[in-house]
Design a protein around this nucleic acid. Structure first.
Lengths: 178, 178
DNA sequence: CTTGACCCCGGAACCGGTTCGGAACTTTAT
DNA sequence: ATAAAGTTCCGAACCGGTTCCGGGGTCAAG
């Protein structure tokens, strides 16, 4: 375990591996966070190893938590940087979080609709399959196209919630009238 | 509506652009579908242009619909290919859809939790901000780390519902005891 | 001295669906 | 004829967070 424990203070500088373990991430991830500006480059020991101060752990955990809340590393970097310079990005953070909440709610609506459609279609299929033993062949897929539901692209299910980029929009029949 | 004007039959072969417009996708997407094996390479005209048969539209719409239901192009390709060869992938399709439903429900649970946490944190922040006018500075972010909730990575919000890869896992402190 | 556990680094791969960049071609207007 | 639109073609880029690759150090134990 090689706990640094140098007799001095309770907690001293730790190396990448230890911090990573403590935070539940990989050292690769730590490097990535540093590169993205959410962690801050730690000092280096004589041999070039990173030596993180005890506070780093809290920072990493904070980042993890914020990520779980839907923040992106980029947003986080911006906010943290502002704060590091004495700024008070509180309102911005609040706004950001509010945006996340909206996204989540929107997504919830979409998924609820999707769930309903899935249940309906499954029910229908089971009914049909009951009558078509063995090598079915009843066009299950086909019935998708007919499903009476809105068909309003509820967002590609897995759509990263951060949907919609179309910076230039070349062709693609913009049928987005929402 | 620029219908095919070759006088022959009611509907004749159409080119990429027309099919794309009709299906509400881009020609790029059509190409992609072809490459992924869900569309099937159409014949080519003398100049190398794709010429899709009328049925292609239904196919594309089917794909769109299936995508909206959470199927991936890869799954779709597999199924469609099977079918194309006389197979009856019905049970498989049903199983797939059932899987989607489970994913959606799981995701719904996660998002509901997340929504709750977001609301809570927002409420808390607003309270705090009310008392800290102007240049706030109350550590909003910090309170994230303390939020009493499970903290059980509800899935990175935007996590594509198709979470989790870790083929080899080098380091990374596998703390996934979910 | 070898083994093995850590550490360093830049850059590519991954996922999945879509879009971009830009060359090449066809049709329409001048 | 020729420029200006409009289409089509294709491979490669994109998103975002993480992991992988792979070649090179550092250090303590055996």
């Amino acid at each position: 375990m090689a706990g640094v424990r140098d007799g001095l203070s309770k907690k001293a500088y730790v190396r990448a591996g230890e911090l990573a373990r403590a935070a539940g991430v990989s050292t690769d991830t730590l490097r990535h966070y540093e590169r993205k500006g959410v962690l801050g480059a730690p000092r280096r020991s004589a041999n070039g190893y990173r030596e993180y101060p005890p506070e780093a752990l809290a920072r990493v955990l904070l980042v993890r938590r914020a990520l779980a809340f839907g923040f992106t590393l980029e947003e986080l970097a911006r906010v943290l940087r502002t704060r590091e310079r004495g700024g008070a990005p509180c309102r911005e953070v609040r706004a950001l979080a509010a945006g996340k909440l909206e996204e989540v709610e929107s997504r919830l609506r979409e998924l609820r609709v999707l769930r309903g459609e899935l249940r309906a279609i499954l029910g229908e299929w089971d009914e049909r399959l009951a009558g078509t033993a063995g090598g079915g062949r009843a066009g299950l897929l086909e019935s998708l196209t007919e499903s009476r539901v809105s068909s309003g692209r509820h967002g590609n299910v897995r759509a990263p919630l951060r949907r919609g980029r179309k910076r230039n929009g070349r062709r693609g029949t913009d049928d987005e009238k929402d």
